[in-house]
Design a protein around this nucleic acid. Structure first.
Length: 471
RNA sequence: GGUCCCAUCGUCUAGUCUGGUCUAGGACGCUAGGUUUUCAUCCUAGUAACCUGGGUUCAAAUCCCAGUGGGACCGCCA
């Protein structure tokens, strides 16, 4: 039987990082099993669903490289939902409950105070006193004993369905509710494996009850551990960025994010004591993936590890691709990006390659290419050295640079000319102030390369300026 | 409050099913050293964990029970 799985986001917000991981696991499982991966937009809540979120979710998924084989818009299937709803009404398996929300919440409060499980067992459950069909449709829950289902990750999960009460299934025939729609769609779409977050475990018994009432087959379940924040509670906005698009904006590379997400709650089987780094492409993950290797406990989202992975991917990029990828971020930070001479952007990008954690970092790392650096006396003299000596060193450098031809003003020739002087006068005391003069920073990319990029004129100008600062 | 789920280094995890070779392995982080004109990269080393208590057994991280801790859910949202 062909494996069919789905990711079922609701378009009420951007794609959440946890949903993205669930999508990834579904995708990997489908590809691994040569099955079908379906995207189902769950937009039954008309008030909260928005087209722009649907678009955004699809874009985010595509950005991650998670492609889907089929696409379903839940609201377009309303006739199917309606059909099953009417069937259940006819069979008296669901009924109209006329109670107001106020009555219900009062009841719930009272039950919790009395240490009871909060549930609604409706006195109208047999339908006889509510012929005009007031209120909402509820499932007439007569289940007794224990309800047990097998979970591919957790094993046997047990619940007591009578504690659920007569749970809601639809506001009316036109507006079915989550547990009902999911059950109908999963069965109708012949979903074989339901792989979703652990937060859905409590929904599963309800859905099984509906399946049984409708005579549907039970799919296989696999409930994933939750993605957690620092404090080990479910990852949410108060922990920071939760939208996939935010990570794109922050300068994370999609393959790196995917790599990181795959490792949240899962790890491939490896040779014992292997020292392989945790770097896997989407393609590499497919044959390695297995539901049985998924962890049961929640996994903390560790941004430090994501940053490391992102750095690894950046370092692995080829120079042209890197420069091309970085350029939009550069434009974001520097409107005068055009001052960089053609072709040299790639040199700058390469210079920073091993230093970037995210693409966005490029903005502040290369400020000295786009504006005159702020050179402070304390920084120039930070490595010891008197103002007099330092000044003398900068002047000596200037003397060596002045006779150079513009065309041969390269990192290599600068290195050749200045290094011997630096070596006889103390590398640090010469090169340090030179670096500060050019960049204003005590940490930067290689300074001969920087000099080459900003050019002879700028290099001289900055040296003069630094000398002035020391005077 | 009720129900369910979970529990190995700070974090992600291997090992648990099929008890022994686990003086518990790897990765991230952190610390130290090396390379380097600074920083970063790179290399080397170090740091650090089986929640607690019982039981089963010659032997338990591994099996069983209890406790503790953490989390999720309890909506006319999904």
């Amino acid at each position: 039987m062909t494996v069919r799985v789905r990711i079922a986001p609701s378009p009420t917000g951007p794609l959440h990082i946890g949903t993205a991981r669930t999508a990834l696991f579904n995708y990997l499982f489908a590809k691994n099993q040569k099955g079908v991966f379906i995207l189902r937009i769950e937009d039954t809540d008309k008030k909260r669903s928005e087209k722009r979120f649907e678009i955004e979710i699809k874009e985010a998924l595509a950005w991650l490289g998670i492609s889907w084989d089929e696409e379903v818009i839940q609201s377009e299937r309303i006739d199917i939902h309606k059909k099953y709803l009417q069937k259940l009404v006819k069979e008296k398996k669901i009924f109209w409950c006329p109670h107001t929300q106020e009555q219900l919440s009062l009841e719930r409060e009272k039950q919790m105070q009395e240490r009871q499980a909060p549930r609604h067992i409706c006195e109208y459950r047999n339908g006889e006193k509510n012929e005009d069909q007031q209120g909402i449709l509820r499932f007439k829950n007569d289940a007794a004993g224990e309800l047990v289902f097998e979970d591919l990750i957790r094993g046997t999960v047990t619940s007591t369905p009578s504690l659920l009460g007569d749970f809601s299934v639809a506001k009316n025939f036109e507006e079915p509710l989550y547990n009902f729609v999911v059950t109908v769609d999963d069965a109708d779409m012949r979903i074989t494996h339901i792989i979703r977050g652990e937060d859905h475990i409590p929904n599963t018994p309800k859905q099984i009850l509906i399946q049984n009432a409708l005579g549907f087959e039970r799919p296989q379940y696999a409930h994933l551990p939750l993605v957690l924040g620092e404090d080990r509670s479910k990852l949410s906005k108060r922990h920071g960025a939760t939208a996939v698009t935010q990570y794109k904006k922050e300068g994370y590379f999609a393959p790196a994010l995917v790599n990181f997400l795959a490792l949240l709650g899962w790890h491939p089987k490896q040779t014992k004591g292997g020292s392989e780094e945790d770097i896997f492409s989407l393609e590499e993950l497919i044959p390695l993936f297995s539901l049985s290797d998924i962890q049961k406990g929640g996994a903390v989202f560790d941004i430090k590890k994501l940053q490391w992975i992102n750095g690894v991917y950046i370092r692995a990029m080829d120079k042209e691709k890197l420069a091309e990828t970085l350029f939009p971020y550069l434009k974001q930070g520097w409107q005068n990006y055009a001052v960089v001479r053609p072709g040299w952007w790639q040199s700058i990008a390469s210079l920073e390659q091993t230093r970037l954690v995210t693409f966005k970092d490029i903005i502040e790392r290369v400020d000295y290419f786009f504006e005159d650096p702020v050179v402070r006396k304390e920084v120039l003299l930070e490595k010891g050295g008197s103002a007099e000596d330092t000044k003398a060193h900068l002047e000596a450098i200037l003397k060596k640079i002045e006779p150079m031809q513009k065309g041969s003003f390269t990192g290599g020739s600068l290195h050749e000319k200045i290094l011997p002087y630096a070596e006889t006068h103390g590398k640090k005391s010469v090169l340090w102030p030179f670096r500060v003069a050019l960049t204003g920073k005590s940490a930067s990319a290689g300074l001969f390369e920087v000099a080459e990029i900003i050019g002879k004129e700028q290099t001289e100008k900055r040296l003069h300026h630094a000398i002035a600062v020391l005077s």
